[in-house]
Amino acid sequence: MNKLKQLLIYFIIIFISFNLHAGASDDVKTSSGDFETSIFEDEIYDPLEGVNRAIFGFNNVADKMILEPAAKGYKKLPTPVQSGIGNFLKNLKLPLVAVNQLLQGQGKNAAESTGRFLVNSTIGIFGLIDVADDFGLEQKEEDFGQTLATWGIGDGFYVVLPLFGPSNLRDTSGMLMTMMTDPINAYAASQGEAWAIPLRTATNAIDQRSKIIDEVNALRDNSLDYYAAVRSSYYQNRKAAINNTDDSDLTPLPLISIEFE
């Protein structure tokens, strides 16, 4: 019990420390006079770039050697099997998605996510089949990182986590909160089935990676600076997720003049 208390205190300290750092790093101003940059570049604060690049290199090797081959193998499974696994994993996330929607004041979305979970877990056979879509219960993603952002907590600096990939202080805090509060993981651990937690994480990674094999390869093979390309893509993607928008109209318009053509 004492150990559990110590662990909880440890996580709280880490969490508060991360968010204090996050707040402080938001005050750092990059001067556009240093170099001509615009919107996203100025917002990406990456003081640990050297360390991040080293971890990124390690992750890249791990991806090429383990994750990408596993994802390619997974893609060879029949499409209904892939969809079933993907649906099952997405369904397991829904309780926390609903909690985050509530924390962000999205009552209607939280009700829809709860409805999705109930319908898919029962009629959809433990979430293997996404029948909720047919009932008009749309899939929406929310996590603690997005919730913290909605509460006004800044990105903090950019970090590349070993194996987990690109993140920032706020989203790392969010990820730790997810790990600590996920009811499915907690239930598995309480039943002495903790092995299911890394299995779930690994399967989820393979499922997600299998959906972007071509995109990642295109980015990796054609980037002048792959690290910077991933960092920029991560920030753009998170920004869209936080704003809850797929609306491309909100992506900053390239400030270019085509008079040169």
């Binding site: 980037s223 910077a228 928008t245 390239p254």
Partner: peptide, 21 residues
């Protein structure tokens, strides 16, 4: 002038990449 896939702009990504390089 731009392609946007899942909220990620090709122009913005290239701009960031070239600035870094």
């Amino acid at each position: 002038i731009d392609l946007i896939i899942s909220g990620i702009s090709l122009y913005e990504t290239k701009r960031s990449e070239f600035n870094s390089m």
